[in-house]
Write a protein that binds this DNA or RNA. Structure first.
Length: 417
RNA sequence: GUGGGUAUAGUUCAGCGGUUAGAGCGUCAGAUUGUGGCUCUGAAUGUCGUGGGUUCGAUUCCCACUACCCACCCCA
C-alpha cells in the first residue's frame, strides 16, 4: 500500500517524460500561433462552482467528484474539468474588461473524477484545453476545432474523425425536448433504467445511450437539427462552411450530446480508433450561457478539452516513436584517483559553456564508463587519464566515426560544437 | 455502481499438490590490466500480491481482501 500509487493515478517515468514534453511543446506552439495565452487555475475550487457550472444533473457532479471539507469547514472539490475554473477566473479577475475575444489555454491541468479506471480512463488525468470568450460567431468554434485537428494531425495521429452537432439554445431546445419526449413517451417502458431517469431531466442524453435496446427504440426519433431556431441554424451552417473553408473534414452526428450541462449550439468530439475501439481524445463546444449563469455578464464562450494521457496513449498504440533520448553531448571518462577532480572540473566547465556533459562518479572501469556513455547517447567521449593529465589535454573520441584527437582542456567545448 | 480476467525476479512471462521456483530481456562483472554498440562466459535479485482455509505438505486447490487489466456506464 505504502509503495503503491493511489488507484487510477499514474507516474510519469523518466522514459516517458520525453513524450509528454513533445506534445506539450506542440500544444504551446499551436496556441501561440493562434493567439491563445496560458492561464493556470487552482487544483481545487469551491464545490458550488461545479454544482452551478457543470450542472447538478450530470454524472460528473452526481457521482464522480472529489469533494471534501477543509479545516475551515468549506466544501471544496478537486476540479473535474477545466472550463469552470477558467470562467471563475475570468469573472473574479474581471478579464472580460480586456480586448475581445479573450483567448486562453491551459496545459497539463490535472482533473479528478472518481470513476472505475480502465483503458484511457484515470482518476487523475490531465487536460489541455482552450477557451475563447466574447465572440458569438461560429468562426471561433471552427478555428478552435481546426486548432485541435491540426495539432493531433501534426503529432502524427492517424484515423481521426471529427463529429459535430448543434444542441440548440434556450430558445429552441425546449421545443425539441417536447418533441423528443412525445416520441419517447410511448416507448418509455422499453428503455433502460438510467434512460427512464433521464426522460424528465435531460431527455437528449437518451440519444447517447449505448444500450442496444435503447438504441433500437431511439430509431426514428426526431433530430435536434430539424428543430433549431433560425439563429442556431445559421450558426451551425456557418460552422460547417468555416470548417470546409479550412479543409477540415467532419461528419454530422446528432448523437453527440456531451455530458456537461453548459453547452449550447456547437458540440463536437474528435475520435480516434484504438485496438479497443473508438476513443474520444478531444471534446468541446459552445457555452454561451455559462458565464451569466455563474453570476457574470452576458458573455459567450467556446472551448474544448483534450486528454493528454489519451493523446499519448493513442500515439503509443499507433507506433509513433518517442523523441531520441540523447542525454549528453560529451561524456567525460576518468581513469584513476588523480583524474576524478579534474574530470569533474571539466564537466562543470562544459556545462557552463552550455554543453550537456556528464561523468562517472563511481570510479568504474573505462569499459563500463564507455558503455554508460553509449547508453546516454553521447556523441563524444573525453578520456582523462594519467597521460592526458600530464599534458593538460583530453583524448576526444567521436563515438560515431571512432576518430580520436588530443584536445587541450580549455578547448573541449569548442572542439565539439 | 455492474460484470469478466489477472497477480511468480527490475521487466515480459514459463512452471508445479512434494527436496534447492525457472527462461528471455535488463542490471553488474569478466573475456579486452586505457576504449562503446556485436559476441561469449559468469553473477546478483523473489516474503510466488495480502490474509485465512483444505491438506501430512500449498507458489500450485478453495474463500476473502487489495491492486491491476478489460467491458458496461460515463467521459478526456
Amino acid at each position: 500500500m505504502l509503495t503503491q500509487a493511489p488507484k487510477g493515478t499514474k507516474d510519469v517515468l523518466p522514459t516517458e517524460s520525453g513524450r509528454w514534453q513533445r506534445i506539450e511543446t506542440a500544444m504551446r506552439e499551436a496556441c501561440a500561433r493562434a493567439g491563445y495565452r496560458e492561464v493556470r487555475t487552482p487544483v481545487f475550487e469551491h464545490t458550488e462552482l461545479f454544482l452551478r457550472g457543470v450542472g447538478d444533473t450530470t454524472d460528473i457532479v452526481q457521482k464522480e467528484m472529489y469533494t471534501f471539507r477543509d479545516k475551515g469547514d468549506r466544501s471544496v472539490t478537486l476540479k473535474p474539468e477545466g472550463t469552470a475554473g477558467v470562467v471563475r477566473m475570468v469573472l473574479e479577475q474581471k478579464l472580460y474588461a480586456e480586448a475581445m475575444p479573450l483567448k486562453l489555454y491551459y496545459l497539463n491541468c490535472p482533473n479528478f473524477r472518481y470513476e472505475k479506471p480502465q483503458n484511457g480512463r484515470l482518476r487523475e488525468f490531465h487536460q489541455f484545453g482552450i477557451e475563447a470568450f466574447g465572440a458569438p460567431e461560429a468562426t471561433v468554434d471552427a478555428e478552435q476545432i481546426a486548432l485541435a485537428w491540426r495539432l493531433l494531425e501534426g503529432l502524427g495521429i492517424q484515423n481521426l474523425t471529427l463529429h459535430i452537432n448543434s444542441i440548440g439554445c434556450p430558445a429552441c431546445r425546449p421545443v425539441y425536448h417536447e418533441k423528443l419526449k412525445a416520441f419517447l413517451g410511448a416507448r418509455l417502458g422499453k428503455l433502460c433504467g438510467t434512460c427512464k431517469e433521464r426522460f424528465e431531466r435531460n431527455p437528449m442524453r437518451i440519444l447517447d445511450c449505448k444500450n442496444p435496446e435503447c438504441q433500437q427504440e431511439i430509431q426514428g426519433a426526431p433530430s435536434i437539427l430539424d428543430c433549431l431556431c433560425e439563429g442556431c441554424q445559421t450558426h451551425f451552417g456557418k460552422l460547417q462552411a468555416a470548417l470546409a473553408a479550412m479543409g477540415i473534414p467532419f461528419s454530422l452526428d446528432p448523437s453527440i450530446v456531451r455530458g456537461l450541462d453548459y453547452y449550447t449550439k456547437t458540440v463536437f468530439e474528435i475520435i480516434t480508433e484504438t485496438p479497443n475501439g473508438p476513443l474520444t481524445i478531444c471534446g468541446g463546444g459552445r457555452y454561451d450561457g455559462l458565464v451569466e449563469q455563474l453570476g457574470g455578464p452576458s458573455l459567450p464562450g467556446v472551448g474544448f478539452g483534450m486528454g493528454m494521457e489519451r493523446v499519448l496513449m493513442v500515439m503509443k498504440s499507433q507506433g509513433i516513436a518517442p523523441p531520441e533520448p540523447n542525454l549528453v553531448d560529451v561524456f567525460v571518462c576518468t581513469l584513476g584517483e588523480a583524474a576524478l577532480l579534474p574530470g569533474l572540473g571539466l564537466v562543470h566547465q562544459l556545462r557552463q559553456a552550455g554543453v550537456r556533459a556528464d561523468s562517472d562518479h563511481m570510479a568504474r572501469s573505462l569499459k563500463a564508463q564507455f558503455k554508460y556513455a553509449d547508453k546516454c547517447g553521447a556523441k563524444y567521449v573525453a578520456v582523462l587519464g594519467e597521460d592526458e593529465l600530464k599534458d593538460g589535454v583530453v583524448t576526444l573520441r567521436n563515438m560515431l566515426t571512432r576518430e580520436e584527437r588530443k584536445i587541450p582542456l580549455a578547448e573541449v567545448a569548442k572542439a565539439i560544437s
